[in-house]
């Protein structure tokens, strides 16, 4: 466990808290992509199948991971549930039009082609890695369609992007300090994912420096 990993995880948790807070205080989910949130729920459910056969008491790290996994699964399901019920009338359904099968299909094919072991759990795990890399796309698509980005939605995506960037630094750290630590599959997907935020980051930072509202061209 290094500083980048912890900071990355905290940034991830912060992004979820920001999103929940935005919905609760403004009583709406305008600008939030339900499709992206459902993809994240699917990502966590397929990533953390190992919860079923891992003893959380094995080590402090296992305990930490178990708590975080349960937190990610439960909050993502909770967000989807809230968007589909309480905040349904504020959801930009027509604008949230990214076609999700175009993400799930290729992620499934990639997982069948590239996985670490020939077991169902490993293929499903690889699927979750590939799907996470692209799950933000409906959200970015929705913002681009809406044009102006609400402050808090901007913070949410920024925190989520920061999580990916910090994880990449964590990999660099580990590759340097832990002999034999190599994770090509995770690294490739993670770098693709971080890259998807590059354009958003550029506009986010520029809007902050100019003190203007964030607009995506």
């Amino acid at each position: 466990m290094n500083i980048f990993r912890i900071a990355g995880d905290m940034s991830h948790v912060a992004s979820i808290a920001i999103l929940l807070l935005k919905m609760k205080t403004s009583r709406n989910c305008a600008g939030v992509s339900l499709k992206t949130q459902e993809l994240y729920a699917l990502v966590f459910l397929t990533r953390y199948v190992d919860l079923l056969f891992t003893n959380p008491l094995r080590s402090p790290l296992t305990m930490y991971n178990t708590i975080m996994k349960i937190l990610f699964i439960s909050t993502s399901l909770y967000i989807v549930y809230q968007m589909r019920t309480r905040y349904k009338h504020t959801y930009n359904e027509a604008a949230d039009a990214f076609r999700v099968p175009f993400l799930i299909g290729p992620a499934a094919v990639a997982a069948l082609l590239f996985h670490l072991k020939n077991t169902v759990v490993e293929v499903v795990w690889a699927f979750s890695i590939f799907l996470e890399a692209v799950a933000i796309m409906p959200q970015l698509f929705l913002l681009q369609k809406t044009g102006e980005v609400e402050n808090i939605t901007g913070h949410y995506i920024f925190a989520l992007g920061a999580y990916r960037g910090l994880y990449a630094l964590n990999w660099v750290w580990r590759a340097f300090w832990e002999p034999g630590y190599r994770q090509w599959l995770t690294w490739t997907a993670g770098i693709v994912q971080t890259g998807l935020y590059a354009d958003f980051f550029y506009h986010y930072i520029r809007s902050k420096r100019q003190g203007k509202k964030l607009k995506l061209p």
Partner: peptide, 10 residues
């Protein structure tokens, strides 16, 4: 083939 890395990240 490649071995599955221990899943110690989230």
């Amino acid at each position: 083939g490649p071995t599955a890395a221990p899943k110690d990240e989230l």
